[in-house]
Design a protein around this nucleic acid. Sequence first.
DNA 1: TTCAGCCTGTCG
DNA 2: CGACAGGCTGAA
Length: 272
Amino acid sequence: MPELPEVETIKRGLERKLIGQKLKNIEIFDSNYLLKNKVKNLNIIVGEKLSSIKRKGKYIIFFFEKNLLLFHLGLTGYFLFIEKNELDKGKKHIILIFEFEKEPFGYFDIRTFAKIKKVKVEEFSTLKELKKLGKDALEINLDEFKSIFWQRNRGVKNLLMDQKVISGLGNIYVNELLFRAKINPFKKSRDLREEEIERLFFQMKSLLGEAIDLKGSSIKNYIDTEGKKGEFQKTFLVYGKKGFSCPRCGNDLKYQKIAQRGTTYCPNCQSI
DNA sequence: TTCAGCCTGTCG
DNA sequence: CGACAGGCTGAA
């Protein structure tokens, strides 16, 4: 799925073209999808202007005048500026098209793990999806970051992947982050020295910053709102490098499931 | 804290 | 054909 850098890229792409525009129509192609998401009367948003778009963790929120739409793109959800008549060329998995005054864009979801929700703007602060999120990885400060590790004692990878603890990081960026910071993914959070936590913190910030600059990572499906792939995957040091050797020390990288997710790390550079 | 399950697609 | 894939939920 899109993780923080991809969601941020998508958010910026939408923002650039849509803020202030009025939604003229919603063309629904998969009403069953909306049914499964318990979204009713989506069309009441038609006629409203889009006032802002926000991101928290991996969620994107569209603020209209009276209603808001909350999206989580799951593993394979994406937005693409596209016209209805362009849909034929192999564009499957279309859920709907938001027809704005100038820029219509489609919402697609290949594996249907993405989520959409519509509520009144005033219900924003009550959204349980957002309330349970930990601080956004771009916003968290060093002191808050330290307390994350000291307040519980869990495996570091597990902890960083937990959106309730810190939001925005996913499997790609945690793999890369742990390698960059030379931290073993199994290491218990309370066993981290303060200096190691600081290393993680600053590496996390620069990793996310670089990834956003390169418009995210495209492994298979991810494309931005213009249909372009990201570039950050070209810089991967360990993610997806199963069977390769460590770019730092040359030892064999190790691959195993940690926290139910494929994990590649260097047992030498990232020793306990 | 684990783990199947939700889906579709691709790769070996 | 099985294994695996940017995520998350809820049940055991």
